[in-house]
C-alpha cells in the first residue's frame, strides 16, 4: 500500500468522524439556546460550542457576531472553516477520491452522495426549524459511512489506518469537550448540586451522545466523578478515551503484524495510554483532571505524527 494511500484513508475517516462530532456539538448549542437560563432569557452557549469544536479562534478572527445564525452557519457550512461539516465532508471525499482503489464502492457511494446532497443545501434555507432534521441527517450519513467501512472494507492495512484516524479524532474530541467543561465536574465548596450544574453535566454527556447510556450503565442520577469515569476510563462507553485508545492500539498491533514495521508507534501508545485500563477516576480527579486532559491531547497529537512518519504518509 502506498504511503499516500494510507494517509488518505487516515484523513478520510478522521474527517468523517469530525463531521459527526461537529454536528453533535451544534445540536448541543441549539438545545442550549432553547433552554431558559436561571438569570432570565435563554442560555446561549455558542461560544463554548465553538470552542469545543476547535473553531472559536477562526470564528472570532472573521469578526462574526456571536449569534445563533452566525455560529450555526460557521459550524455547518463555512468552507473557510476547515472543521465545518461542509469542509469535513469535502476533505473526506477528496481523500477518498484520491484513493478510489482503496475504498469500497459502498464507502465511496456513502461519502459521495453525502457530499452531493450536503453541497446542494442552501445555508440560508436551513433555519432553526430545519436544523434538527439536518443534524439528524448528518449523523445518519456518517453512520452509513462507518457501517459501509466496517461491513465492506478488506481487513488489511487500509482498514486499520482508517480505524486509527477515526478513533484518534474521537478520542481527541471527547478530551476537548471534557477539557472545556471539566470545571463543573470538580467538587465545589458547598457540595450542593443545583439546577445549573445538573444541566451542565447533561450537556457534557449529550455532547458525546452519552446522556442515556450513562443512566443505563450507572443506574443513578448524574454524579460528576462518574461522568468523568464514564468518558475517560470506561471501556463500555464507545466514545471514552479508554475505548478509543484500546482500538487504536489494537489496530496498531495489526499494522505491525501486517507490515513488520511501526513497532515504535505501538511502544509509544502502550506507554502513554496503557495506564488507562488500571487507572482509578479518584486518582485522576485528585491529581488534576485538567492537566490529565492536556497531557492526553498532547499524546494523541504526538502519536498521529509518529504514525505518519513511521508509515511514510508523505
Amino acid at each position: 500500500m502506498l504511503g499516500r494511500t494510507a494517509a488518505s484513508l487516515f484523513w478520510m475517516s478522521r474527517y468523517m468522524e469530525r463531521a459527526e462530532n461537529v454536528a453533535r456539538l451544534t445540536e448541543v448549542g441549539y438545545r442550549s439556546a432553547l433552554t431558559p437560563d436561571s438569570g432570565g432569557g435563554h442560555r446561549g452557549d455558542w461560544q463554548s460550542v465553538l470552542q469545543a469544536a476547535g473553531c472559536l479562534k477562526g470564528f472570532e478572527a472573521r469578526g462574526f457576531p456571536l449569534t445563533a445564525d452566525a455560529a450555526r452557519n460557521y459550524l455547518l457550512f463555512d468552507r473557510e472553516n476547515s472543521s465545518s461539516v461542509m469542509s469535513c465532508i469535502e476533505i473526506a471525499r477528496n481523500n477518498a477520491r484520491s484513493v478510489r482503489t482503496a475504498v469500497t464502492r459502498e464507502m465511496w457511494e456513502a461519502l459521495n452522495s453525502t457530499w452531493n446532497e450536503f453541497a446542494a443545501l442552501a445555508p440560508g434555507a436551513v433555519g432553526p426549524a430545519r436544523l434538527p432534521e439536518i443534524l439528524d441527517w448528518i449523523r445518519q450519513r456518517t453512520a452509513l459511512f462507518r457501517g459501509a467501512t466496517i461491513g465492506t472494507l478488506l481487513r488489511d492495512e487500509g482498514y486499520h489506518f482508517s480505524q486509527i484516524g477515526a478513533y484518534l479524532e474521537r478520542a481527541d474530541n471527547t478530551a476537548r469537550i471534557l477539557k472545556m467543561r471539566y470545571s463543573v465536574l470538580l467538587p465545589n465548596s458547598s457540595g450542593e448540586i443545583n439546577d445549573r450544574s445538573a444541566y451542565q453535566w447533561e450537556t457534557i454527556l449529550r455532547s458525546v451522545s452519552a446522556h442515556r447510556s450513562y443512566r443505563h450503565f450507572y443506574q443513578e442520577s448524574y454524579r460528576p466523578h462518574h461522568i468523568a469515569e464514564f468518558l475517560v476510563l470506561r471501556q463500555e462507553m464507545p466514545r471514552s478515551l479508554r475505548h478509543c485508545c484500546d482500538l487504536i492500539c489494537e489496530s496498531l498491533r495489526h499494522l505491525v503484524a501486517l507490515t513488520e514495521g511501526g513497532e515504535s508507534c505501538v511502544t509509544f501508545a502502550d506507554q502513554r495510554f496503557g495506564g488507562l485500563c488500571n487507572m482509578k477516576v479518584e486518582h485522576i480527579m485528585t491529581s488534576g483532571l485538567g492537566a490529565f486532559l492536556d497531557g492526553f491531547i498532547n499524546d494523541t497529537g504526538e502519536l498521529a505524527t509518529a504514525i505518519g512518519a513511521e508509515f511514510h504518509f508523505l
Partner: peptide, 18 residues
C-alpha cells in the same frame, strides 16, 4: 508521479513498508 522514485536502477513506489 510523487509516489514513484528511481533508486538503484529500478522504479519503486513509496509504500507504508518503504
Amino acid at each position: 508521479g510523487s509516489d514513484l522514485m528511481i533508486e538503484d536502477g529500478a522504479l519503486y513506489m513509496r509504500t507504508i513498508r518503504g
